[in-house]
Design a protein around this nucleic acid. Sequence first.
DNA 1: CTGTTAGCGCTTTCAA
DNA 2: TTGAAAGCGCTAACAG
Lengths: 308, 308
Amino acid sequence: MTSMSDVARAAGVSAATVSRALRGEPGVSEATRRYVTEVAKRMRYAIARDASSLAGGRKYAVAVLTADVGRGDLLAGAEGALRTAGYDVLLYVLRDGGTRAEFFEELPALGRRVDGVLALSVDLTDAERDALDALDVPVVAVRDDDLREALRLAAGHVLELGHRDVALVLAEDVDESYDELLVAEGLSVRPEWTLWSSSTVAGGEQVVDVLLDGDRLPTAVICSSGEVALGVFLRLRRDGRGVPEDVSIVSLDGPELARAVGITAVEGAWRERGEHAVHRLLAGLRDEPHDVQPPSVHLVVRESTGRR
Amino acid sequence: MTSMSDVARAAGVSAATVSRALRGEPGVSEATRRYVTEVAKRMRYAIARDASSLAGGRKYAVAVLTADVGRGDLLAGAEGALRTAGYDVLLYVLRDGGTRAEFFEELPALGRRVDGVLALSVDLTDAERDALDALDVPVVAVRDDDLREALRLAAGHVLELGHRDVALVLAEDVDESYDELLVAEGLSVRPEWTLWSSSTVAGGEQVVDVLLDGDRLPTAVICSSGEVALGVFLRLRRDGRGVPEDVSIVSLDGPELARAVGITAVEGAWRERGEHAVHRLLAGLRDEPHDVQPPSVHLVVRESTGRR
DNA sequence: CTGTTAGCGCTTTCAA
DNA sequence: TTGAAAGCGCTAACAG
């Protein structure tokens, strides 16, 4: 395996010069740099990163934490941006409580391996957050949802279409009702139209059963997951209700499903968000400020929503 | 940052002994090993991997290639198994032609960073395969589909339920018709019942339109994707056909969607497959044989299939 | 601008 | 069973 000194010898310079030339460090004449670079390429030289980071302190690696690999685009976006910036991506999947505890158990070792940490879709507890901060490397965390913002978009959309009677179906583990937010957007709220459901098609169908028990139907339903939206859609259709003629449906998540079925949905630009997170992290590594706003979620209008 | 020699000093032994003790190498008395281990833990010592691999040659890292992060479970399974075995996971997302070319461009450098390569869901060309093999580290590749096997399971299932008139909907980019396979399973084949469709709900719906144009409907439809299965399902229902009373539906993929909607589907045990791939790779690293069969795909029977 | 000299923190002979 | 010494392949001072 050709080493840096091999290249140095072949180019007739010292290893230090090769090092400087290849890394674009100042203090090398352009001519030398060009020549060294060329020799290195010709010799198919690849730097030994261990040696480099051992000597230099920088690891050229970032740990990427993810709760599960569901939101693939977020991860892919981050990976691409890191790779482009010359960093290796050390993946850690914090699947369940077990792997998660284990990870935080062995955190100290991580600090010696990476220059920074990116937490994607991981809901960090305060203790976990503290443990990461104690690592003494920059940490950037990205949540993979932004329910309030998504809800705002969805509410604005149906309002604009003339809807006033809007039901909201939340995931079971959400404990807020978001009434004030809806009211703030200009929608009136009926308590019986805020529902909680498991994020499944069957759950969505049951929701419609509940709604049908009421004295009248809402004209629009906002669902927190694609599965629920689909369930609502199917059940309404089975009951002879037109979508969107009788009821409009908006999904706050589940972009693939929504796209496949043609449901209006809030989508997250996840790849871009992953890239953005990396830029923030890299700025942190360089101690630069980074004020750029993350790409925001947006609404993709499809066939499930119509004018009231 | 406490180093190995710090631990050595604190334990009153040499660094070499600490190294041997901590790695479980022979040549250390049990008493010493226990003591050193304890001192190290007390000092919260974490080994510097750069130094370790620089000196020892082993990298304790595996490159994991993935075409996209769609099949998250496969990746998660591999990550878990690697982590358990003490290996770092270097993630490479080969999203498109560009990143892919770039990756293979810089392959040589990879050989210096990892002990092995795991290719998940990546369709390697012969040239790419050769390039990887030239890296001189073990390479294990796992395809994320096994259409023939899935089809065999699905065909067997509908056959067992008494179906003889079975339609098959393949993805657009599949160029085989799999007639012989179906015939071998005991199904008769009508050419007009082998269809190709885009993997969308709309595509599935169109497929039903085509089928309805025929002189009679098949009694079962095997779909290569969850979206298509859903489209078929929806369109049949809209036409007043009962599923599974009139037509049974089996999906060859799209486990989440199939589960959400209640469609019988072939599922892949992806997590286990990821783990299995890692075991094969690790065996390769240790130069041991590994004959264990990978976990096979299986059929999950739901409400979309019934006896003819 | 370039070279020389010291390590970085380990693992691995080789002796003891 | 243990220790001393010699690197692994780089980067970072320090000279020149």
